[in-house]
Every structure is written in structure tokens, then in C-alpha cells.
């Protein structure tokens, strides 16, 4: 299976993608591709240590962190999808980031694909279901992929509480209605006590340097 992670920049795609990779790596061979060429901060590729320790293959541009750390994609996602049981593709933020995905449509067509749309309803530009639906439409138009699953990753970083997540569920249901996407995953950080249908517990992997 190929999992494509899309979403607003800063919505928590990378943290979710890394957690998904760690989980899937227990079930089969897993690779994660960093397609974020828009922004060189807080990327999957920076988490190589924890991913490689779990046996996750990291697919990054061969220019990563070289003098040529420029927007470039030098890898073949089609063969990565064929080679591994699970391939996770962490896409750059917004429609700008999703443009890169379009070029791989053909190459990814041999295997089933699940597209997961990560959303944080506490982000200033995606506070409501209609904001989030509009961002998704832009991403879908730019990438040529349709989302199959909504990943409700509503959080306030270190200030996240069970209430933060609870409050977001109504908006998430609205988004589901607006977009016709029925499947919802609710992301719960491991230190938070909250139960929800389809919960997905995550470790906070993407950290700030002083934590």
C-alpha cells in the first residue's frame, strides 16, 4: 500500500507520517519518502535516526543537506512503491507542496494508494470546516489525487489537552460532510488521555531544540 500524506503546512504531516512509518514497520518492509521541497525546516528527512533505528528506509533527494539542498526530486517513487510493502509519502505543505506529487501519478498507479489529509483545526488558516475544505480542494487540484481519509490532528503543540481534541470533532464531522470523505482518524498524542473512534496514538517526534 502507498500512503500519501497531504495537508496545510504546519498541520503536523511530518509527525503523523513518521508515526505511521514506525507503526507500519512492525508489519512489513516500510519506506518513507520526503517530498517536501518547499520548506527545508522540520522535515521527515531530519528524523532519520529514529526512523532508521526502526528499520524504515528513508527516501530523500540525493542532494539533501548538500550544498545543493535545493528543490529537487531525484528519486524514483514508482520503484520504491514496488520494492516495499508500505511506502509513505510525506508531501510538502499546501497546493504549492502538492504540485510535486502530480508528477508521480503515473508511477504510483500500479499499487493501491490511500491519500490522507492532515488537518489541525487550531491552525489560524484552517479554523473551520469550510477553510479546511478549501485548502483540500486546492491541494487536490494541484496534485491530481483525491483524499480518502481525514486525519484530525488538531493540536496546540505543548498546550494540547483532551479538550482541544474533543472540541475539534464537531468541525471534523462537518468537514467529512462537506467533502464526502467518510473515514476519519483522530490523532491523540501519547501523553493525552482521550478516547475516540479510530484513534491513532502518536509520539511527538518533531521537537523543538530546547525540549
Amino acid at each position: 500500500m502507498t500512503y500519501i500524506i497531504i495537508g496545510h503546512y504546519g498541520s503536523g504531516k511530518t509527525n503523523f507520517a513518521c508515526n505511521l512509518a514506525l507503526k507500519l514497520s512492525q508489519e512489513g518492509s516500510t519506506a518513507i519518502a520526503d517530498l517536501d521541497i518547499v520548506n527545508p525546516y522540520f522535515r521527515t528527512a531530519d528524523q532519520s535516526e529514529i526512523l532508521e533505528a526502526a528499520g524504515v528506509k528513508l527516501v530523500v533527494s540525493k542532494f539533501f543537506t548538500s550544498t545543493l539542498d535545493i528543490p529537487s526530486l531525484t528519486f524514483d517513487l514508482g520503484s520504491a512503491a514496488a520494492e516495499y510493502d508500505n511506502l509513505i509519502i510525506d508531501v510538502g505543505g499546501d497546493d504549492e507542496g502538492a504540485k510535486t506529487l502530480g508528477r508521480y501519478r503515473e508511477a504510483l498507479s500500479d499499487k493501491p494508494v490511500t491519500v490522507l489529509y492532515v488537518v489541525n483545526f487550531r491552525r489560524y488558516l484552517s479554523k473551520t470546516a469550510s477553510d479546511a475544505a478549501e485548502i483540500l480542494r486546492e491541494i487536490e487540484a494541484a496534485s491530481g489525487f483525491r483524499a480518502d481519509v481525514i486525519v484530525n490532528n488538531t493540536n496546540l503543540a505543548e498546550e494540547t489537552t483532551a479538550e482541544t481534541i474533543k472540541d475539534s470533532e464537531k468541525e471534523c464531522q462537518k468537514l467529512s460532510k462537506l467533502t464526502g470523505i467518510k473515514e476519519i482518524i483522530t490523532v491523540i498524542p501519547e501523553m493525552i488521555d482521550y478516547s475516540s473512534d479510530n484513534r491513532f496514538t502518536v509520539k511527538i517526534i518533531v521537537k523543538k531544540p530546547w525540549n
Binding site: 504546519g10 520548506n39 525546516y41 522540520f42 487550531r122 496546540l156 503543540a157 498546550e159 523543538k208 531544540p209
Partner: peptide, 10 residues
């Protein structure tokens, strides 16, 4: 600096 500009905080 780049870190403050790029990081997410409430």
C-alpha cells in the same frame, strides 16, 4: 531567526 519563523506555537 529561521527557527522562530518556521516553528509552530500557539
Amino acid at each position: 531567526d529561521g527557527l522562530l519563523g518556521q516553528m509552530m506555537e500557539p
